[in-house]
Design a protein around this nucleic acid. Sequence first.
DNA 1: CCACCGCATCGATGGATGTCAATTCATGGG
DNA 2: CCCATGAATTGACATCCATCGATGCGGTGG
Lengths: 119, 119
Amino acid sequence: MSLTDIHTPVRTGTDAACCAPASRDAIGAEAAETLARSLKALADPARLRLVSMVAAHPDAEACVCDLTEPLGLSQPTVSHHLKVLVEAGLLTRDKRGTWAYYRLVPGALDSLAALLAAV
Amino acid sequence: MSLTDIHTPVRTGTDAACCAPASRDAIGAEAAETLARSLKALADPARLRLVSMVAAHPDAEACVCDLTEPLGLSQPTVSHHLKVLVEAGLLTRDKRGTWAYYRLVPGALDSLAALLAAV
DNA sequence: CCACCGCATCGATGGATGTCAATTCATGGG
DNA sequence: CCCATGAATTGACATCCATCGATGCGGTGG
């Protein structure tokens, strides 16, 4: 399921609910899992700072060596967090020569925020 | 620190960064922790569904008995998730008689989404 | 006054996760 | 050809977390 497919009309339960049957449909279980996976990727101080630091760099591009020292974490840990962010579709990795450059995926943060507000 | 106080001008590191010094300021470590705490509260499928189910109910209000069965989780687990959401400032709890009614905190989701988009 | 019901809390447990040191991989320069 | 450097991977470890069953607590009705 894609992140753009959250409010599919999945009934939220049977009609045997104790008090009231819901006036509109809540998000379905799969949509919730999809959104939760994306939010989990950002629900970490180190990863939030990484995203922000990449966005703050000139050309919105940064290599690992730019990020390790200001973050105060070891290089493997930073690499790990960056991998999580790439797999979540928030960053892209571009290896040029010795260095690996990370960029924001345009619009990824905004669509995530939009989905969050629509829950 | 409050959630409305993310982009305070905290320098992200020393000037000894290896490649480029950053063209604008990234969010500070404390702001990142604050935002991460809020996002963690929502970065769970069960809690996302709970928020959505509460919002979907008539009068945007639901008691635990409304939520346990459609969610497919035990009552203690649902109570636990609701507590997390209340502590994160996303829901309010109102005990009336035998039942505990949960409501969305107006604007909480939207301001969180706005902060996310501004990272 | 007592039994029942809705909900919160407690304790335990299995699994996910953040972190680092050590290692490996890849690339470029001598 | 080998070494130096930047980055990813691996393995280990401690901690956190989602979940449940059992229990406790307050309110309602008989």
